[in-house]
Write a protein that binds this DNA or RNA. Sequence first.
DNA 1: CTGTTAGCGCCTTCAC
DNA 2: GTGAAGGCGCTAACAG
Lengths: 329, 329
Amino acid sequence: MAQIKDVALHAGVSVATVSRVLAGQTAVTDATRQRVLDAVKALDYRPDLAARRLRSRRNDTIGLIVADIRNPFFTEVSRAVEDIAYQNRMRVILCNADENPDKEALYLDLMRDENVSGVILSPTLRTLARLPLRDYPFPLVLVDRCNPDTVADAVVLDNSDAAYRLTTHLIEQGHRRIVFIYGATSATGHQRLDGYRNAMARHGLDSEAHAVPATADDACQATRQRLTVQPAPDTFIGSNGLILLGITEALREVQLRFPEQVALAGFDNLPWTRLVEPGITVIAQPVYDIGQAAIELLMQRIANPGQSIRRVVLRGELLARGSSMRRAA
Amino acid sequence: MAQIKDVALHAGVSVATVSRVLAGQTAVTDATRQRVLDAVKALDYRPDLAARRLRSRRNDTIGLIVADIRNPFFTEVSRAVEDIAYQNRMRVILCNADENPDKEALYLDLMRDENVSGVILSPTLRTLARLPLRDYPFPLVLVDRCNPDTVADAVVLDNSDAAYRLTTHLIEQGHRRIVFIYGATSATGHQRLDGYRNAMARHGLDSEAHAVPATADDACQATRQRLTVQPAPDTFIGSNGLILLGITEALREVQLRFPEQVALAGFDNLPWTRLVEPGITVIAQPVYDIGQAAIELLMQRIANPGQSIRRVVLRGELLARGSSMRRAA
DNA sequence: CTGTTAGCGCCTTCAC
DNA sequence: GTGAAGGCGCTAACAG
């Protein structure tokens, strides 16, 4: 494996000059630069990144800690982050916290050990609550989840508002007994719950919400459970794609038809929501954009640590489909 | 940030001793070890990984280069790899090649630069073809995709056999004009095609296959296209979850009902395949197990570079659902 | 514009 | 069982 001194020797210059050329500095003659570049190519020289990182104290690695990689929302966010990061010569270390605050803490520690340039995190409620207390040795950008008063860069959906619009749409379609099932571990679930409650209250309707672990299985279970209790709901709302999936499975098990027997709506415009007859009404999130905004925010913060805290709020789009339509009275 | 010499000072020992304790070596008195450990805790000392990696020439990082992170198959593989890797104190660098051989080559280069301990790769056809020519400076385990004669550790499904069984099942249900739509860029797609062709030939039926880029949109397009041509097919098979999704969307657009007007089957037991009435017949892959087997194979290879090449073949399970049932003649 | 040199923080022989 | 000392390969002052 060729080293920098081999290149220097080959090109007839000092190691410092090689280093300068590789760093893209201008203070080098074109002729010298060319000789170095030739030598690099001739020897197939690759800088040792460990040495570079040790010496330069920079790292060019970012940590991505997602709440649940199986959630297609986070998959797409990861894709965007990965895309943009590599375009900017940064590496991405992927961590999947599985909605587990302990795993999250472990990974945050790991990121500290790695001395990463920055971290993108979708925190659980517990970690979010502790956030102001801890001081992280790296720039941190939150994605998908944060509180109104969180002091950190963040990229989120207009959760409360989107849920309000979704709920209002259902009410306008004549639905009344609307049950909201949401993920217990995320601020996002709670904010969407707020929006739902506001919409219900404004129309003089009673809210009914159930918190579940944010998995399809748990949502399915909760829905099954609820179906055994009278009075039966008009309508279910799922606070994210996984939960919506679980609800849909449960309703299918008992052969309820949409929207005649029960209406249905939720978050995340996943492909299957169009496939299930007659189409499931959802709030579509600009998922790739969310990831892109997060990594861009992080890179800005890295470049300019002193800049003021920013929050990017993206708007969810209501896609009204058959599952929420006015039922034949 | 505390350094090793601070710990040494605090504990009243030399840096060498601290290093030994941290390396878990036995050649240290229990009393000394305890003093060092106390000092580590007192100073909240974290070894500098860049320095450690430079000095030790080890890295404890593995690269995971997946063909398409949006494909839930690879999402789940990633989850398993990440899980097991962190349990074994290894980091995972995630790369998404988007079925693009150039990106793949770029990432493989990157992995070399990173001096990773090993790489898990789901190669495109092109990269797979070049594999024997290139000599990688790290252990390499293929996942999901390899040829019969590929000289590398690999974890794959019994693709050809599974496709054979799936096709035979369809034929036994009375379907005859079966169209196979498959991903052009993967060895897996081609092997499943082989299985399909074998089954068709054995029953004296003509094969009809269409290669597409492995995305839902492309598969949807191809299906639409095919539907405009006479004679219309009995049945469609999709060679993976994304393609099956695209086919399903196209068939839904024209309101064809399963299995009366058209039968349908494919690979990957994704949640939505149960949701779409009357359930879509699939070959279920043991996705988490595939990822787990890959990372375990890699760790074995890292521990014992000389061991002979291994191939792990997992069996796909046929889940017969409504979409493939015998049609009322 | 270019070269010399002193470390970055740690591990690991080699002595004792 | 423990300490002293020499790098790992590179970057960044500082000279020239």
